[in-house]
Design a protein around this nucleic acid. Structure first.
Lengths: 254, 254
DNA sequence: GCACGAGTTCGACAATGTCAAACGCGGTTC
DNA sequence: GAACCGCGTTTGACATTGTCGAACTCGTGC
């Protein structure tokens, strides 16, 4: 808790704001948001610009994220063991299920997508590596929250946003779902984030036994489900793949 | 030059080191590299960890980049006008040429890949969005350097690294190549970065007339070339696509 | 068991970043 | 076209803040 460098925390707060909804913000916008004098914010921005973390639009004078962050983001992926280990398995899972595969990890009570394999033979999908998905409305999120009660509490504490009519917004309902996920070792979701879309996922465990990631498939509900249940063979493929990655990470031998 | 916040510059230097060759570095490694006392470096790292920009491997105690950077990197892409405008055109260019398409921009005298479309019907290629390619050994780089003499000088100043026997390492030879690229409005390269691989690219111009990006195709030399020249129809597709994007960015009407 | 090297903590000092007020420059308004 | 916003930027005095070296702890290997 003690001794955190103020200017760096403030700089990070600026970057966080710039990576939010409005990608372009001016000095006064940021100053207002952070309750800081604009002179101070300007100094931070000047330095951030110098190191390439932000860029300034010459016409409007407003600031946006800088190119250096893109390269660092991809460097993060290179060093990410979870993703590296999961690379092979995710390809074959996509091939077996004919669905898009995603691998994610918990970050700030949301699901950070660290890998994404497109659905085979289905062009023009958008890559969402780097996206932050809501944890309570995705199968990966449920699997992750199931082993991270603290993150679950935090998420519930800040309110469960509804994305469709089927999104779980009641804390108790979510807690049940998480218990279920913990017991079964997998989770699913239908139309809770996007109408007509479903997903199922299983946990990736590391050598210490903690759930460090989740692996799952996403696609049209009609393809993933039969009679309002996840299709058994798809589910078992997902669970096998996740178990294989866990094994590579040094989790329980089998 | 004046008034840059020291701690932020140091933090950025740490992140830069962590995104380099060795993705995992300890406090003393970093301190040695930066010529700083390790106490200082530790304080910076503590804060960077707190904001999610670095993570510490609990076993080895070493530090690596953090997950927050991945999300910020992808947020940068969302706000990047060059990439947004180029999205449609790059897909159709890939379809027309049957080759992989890349869009890049200059960053620190290298080419930062901001978009990448895989070669159609050719699976298992690695996505290199976020990669920094050497400018003097790629078609995109030549096109970009042609309009950025300062960056070219800087690159030459730090020495032209050889990747294959065909890499241009002589400053004069590179300068000729850049002049040629400037005159013709396109550039190419065969085996200068990777043996057997060729690329060709054309500049993307913004409303002020500056080259803000490059768009091109990469692939096996045998497919891209005829009799040691770029195949004319591929080249014209590339140039058309780049011109179309430039047009969208508000460059000269035509 | 000792010494080394790692990451971490601590506290005194002054260098450093902060802040409020003033500046300059586009727009817009009347 | 002059007065006026609102913006990003600059400035300089102040004291908060980050810095730095030494001391600490823990794990390793000689």
């Amino acid at each position: 808790m003690p001794g955190n460098i103020q200017s760096i925390e403030r700089a990070a707060a600026i970057l966080r704001l710039l990576s939010g909804r409005n990608r372009r913000l001016g000095v006064v916008d940021l100053a207002g948001e952070l309750n800081l004098p604009k002179g101070t914010v300007h100094g931070l921005l000047r330095t951030l610009q110098h190191v390439g973390f932000v860029e300034q639009d010459k016409d409007s004078g407003k600031y946006q994220l800088g190119a250096a962050l893109l390269h660092m983001g991809s460097s993060y992926l290179d060093g990410n063991e979870l993703r590296t280990r999961a690379l092979n398995w995710s390809d074959s899972l996509a091939a077996r299920t004919h669905e898009a595969v995603r691998i994610g990890t918990l970050h700030d009570s949301r699901v950070l997508v660290v890998h994404h394999v497109f659905r085979p033979d289905d062009s023009f999908q958008t890559l969402d590596v780097g996206s932050l998905l809501p944890a309570h409305a995705t199968a990966m999120g449920k699997v992750l929250l199931a082993d991270h009660p603290y993150a679950a509490d935090e998420l519930i504490g800040q309110g469960l946003e509804a994305f469709t009519d089927w999104t779980i917004t009641a804390p108790d309902r979510l807690r049940e779902e998480l218990t279920l996920a913990r017991e079964r070792g997998w989770a699913w979701e239908v139309g809770e984030l996007l109408a007509g879309q479903a997903s199922m996922a299983a946990p990736i465990i590391d050598r210490t036994g903690r759930t460090v990631g989740a692996m799952g498939i996403v696609g049209k509900a009609e393809r993933l489900l039969t009679t309002r249940k996840p299709r058994a063979e798809l589910l078992s493929y997902v669970r096998e793949a996740a178990r294989a990655v866990s094994h590579e990470l040094g989790a329980i031998p089998w």
